[in-house]
């Protein structure tokens, strides 16, 4: 079974701000048009009065901001990741609801540092957003390789959970950075 989808791009620069690539702009436009037609329905032409400007703006943002060199996404790893993600976000919602709905607030908030193992920019963004959906953790700042994590309860050490999650993300993006440091 083929489990790889190519997300390769023809050329890349080093800087985060540079001329948008035409290839990315067109691919982004195609994907965002599909998303718009799912949301608004493609049959009503009037929906494109808002849809076309929105799709063009989104594609331009994507083409200007996307930073990754060519790499592949593993669908198999994504499928493996999905049940973990659903279960963790379920636990995250239950956990925070129990903490705030009880007669006494059960929180002991504080900041802690976590060293990022991921190296690809898109994998990092994905992971940083995921951290906020896990029980008890919120990604608060990124500076270099250091992710500042806000914990709702300092008593629960989330570093092990974060490392486990980071490995799952690394497998999806084919990023070997997280595997090198353990």
């Amino acid at each position: 079974m083929s489990s790889n989808v190519s997300l390769s791009t023809p050329r890349d620069g080093e800087n985060s701000l540079r001329r948008p690539s035409t290839y990315r702009f067109l691919m982004g436009g195609l994907v965002f048009s599909a998303v718009w037609s799912i949301f608004a329905g493609a049959r009503d032409p009037a929906s494109w009065i808002i849809g076309i400007p929105a799709v063009v703006a989104a594609a331009w943002c994507y083409a200007s901001l996307a930073q990754d060199r060519r790499h592949r996404l593993s669908l198999l790893a994504l499928v493996r990741f999905m049940p973990v993600f659903l279960w963790e976000s379920f636990k995250g919602g239950i956990d925070v609801a129990r903490r705030v709905l009880g007669p006494r607030l059960r929180v002991d908030p504080g900041l802690l540092d976590y060293r990022l193992g991921l190296t690809l920019p898109s994998a990092r963004v994905f992971f940083v957003d995921l951290v906020s959906l896990l029980p008890g953790t919120l990604s608060a700042d990124v500076q270099g390789d250091r992710l500042r994590v806000h914990a709702l309860d300092r008593g629960l050490d989330p570093a092990g959970d974060l490392r486990r999650l980071e490995r799952l993300v690394a497998a999806i993006f084919g990023d070997d950075g997280a595997m090198l440091r353990s």
Binding site: S89, V96, A97, V107, H150, L152
Partner: peptide, 17 residues
């Protein structure tokens, strides 16, 4: 919740679920 960072926990996680 007592501070802005803690409040964000409630908004992201509970509302998503």
């Amino acid at each position: 919740l007592p501070d802005p960072l803690s409040r964000l926990h409630a908004l992201t996680k509970a509302d998503n679920l």
